[in-house]
């Protein structure tokens, strides 16, 4: 599924979307950046509370195309600038991590019927 289609399906606020057509394979939920480095699959969106430049750096390294900030967390200017520079999408939702991940699962048909 394209990122754009996932944004529409999940009802996320698109704060920055450098490439709407990039393919999304799933989601990874974590607030620990080392955990993201260790386990986030390539092509997954990162669902997190970490609203700073280091989350962008980690996404760049693991090949995560987008960060979904839960609880409608603010996006600091430096984070916006870093994401723009690195081509990482920034999305916001009022959901918590569980419900944000649930929406991704539904949109991608992951876990349905398991």
């Amino acid at each position: 599924m394209t990122l754009n289609a996932l944004i529409v399906a999940c009802g996320w606020e698109p704060a920055l979307v450098p490439d709407p057509e990039v393919e999304v394979s799933g989601a990874y939920v974590s607030d620990l950046l080392s955990d993201v480095m260790a386990h986030c699959p390539d092509g997954a969106v990162l669902i997190t509370v970490q609203n700073h430049t280091n989350s962008v750096a980690v996404c760049t390294l693991v090949g995560a195309p987008a960060i979904v900030l839960v609880h409608n967390r603010e996006i600091p200017e430096e984070m916006q600038a870093a994401a723009s520079r690195e081509g990482v999408a920034l999305l916001r939702t009022t959901d918590d991590q569980f419900h944000a991940a649930l929406r991704v699962g539904k949109a991608l048909g992951i876990g349905v019927g398991e």
């Binding site: 607030d31 620990l32 950046l33 080392s34 955990d35 480095m37 260790a38 997190t48 970490q50 700073h52 280091n54 989350s55």
Partner: peptide
Amino acid sequence: LGFGAGMGLVN
């Protein structure tokens, strides 16, 4: 900030 989870060297 999301650091200091004690996973760095393990990773």
